[in-house]
Design a protein around this nucleic acid. Sequence first.
DNA 1: ATACAAACTAAGAACTATTCTTATTTTATA
DNA 2: TATAAAATAAGAATAGTTCTTAGTTTGTAT
Lengths: 126, 126
Amino acid sequence: MVYKASKQRELIVSHLRDMDGHISAEQLFKRINESQKISLATIYRNLGILVELKEIKKIPLDDGFVYDKTCAPHYHFYCDTCATLFDLENTDLVKVHQTLQTESVIGEIDTYEVTIKGTCINCKKN
Amino acid sequence: MVYKASKQRELIVSHLRDMDGHISAEQLFKRINESQKISLATIYRNLGILVELKEIKKIPLDDGFVYDKTCAPHYHFYCDTCATLFDLENTDLVKVHQTLQTESVIGEIDTYEVTIKGTCINCKKN
DNA sequence: ATACAAACTAAGAACTATTCTTATTTTATA
DNA sequence: TATAAAATAAGAATAGTTCTTAGTTTGTAT
């Protein structure tokens, strides 16, 4: 399968780039449709293509999937209260990787993806 | 809501206890129906109740949800190739928790759940 | 022990997120 | 510029999960 460029895919990529967080297919569909016309099936198909090309990452959460605009190694924190996925920035997390690599079931860590769950700083205050 | 005991819930709990890994609602339904008669809706409703009671944990994966028989803090490794979720046993992982707690977005880590993705030792051999 | 209310069940309908189908349009290449 | 491959929109189909309903079981108070 040789992918061909399309206006719609460029549209999706540019909207993903503008995001600072993570977005669901439905949210992306609504946001793009504010200014352009695009089919929901097109959103899903292109997100699938982008995941296959390893340009973005598909992340399963309790309430559906969310897409991350990058596959670059970084870590996530999911707040169970506000159902939001945050990026973790601390570079000390390399230590996590080193610790994990000693585990016997692990053949190879591909994405280094780590998702921790809890309550975020804002939700804890309330 | 005051939950009342039921034969079906006991059945579900006992099957979960016998598992050494993680199981989907569908798999649990099939397994229980080998010997007893139970409705799929009953499986889903009771799994939901057990999650609410924090007796088990619901884990979102790329290909649907899986249930973990315990909420005790431990870590997971997901193999993208065989789509299997493994428990990680290494107690050094406490270090991970210490590292993470310095992150500014984290208010409180509830479950300490960590899921790392990659290729398991078996799939890497093949 | 019995009656009552609340929570439970099975069965299948309903819902919803995602994927598939089809007829048509766009893109890349020769 | 013609052709083949891949793209699109729109809506139908699928599948996993939740909801509805009528009837059953459970726990509590008398």
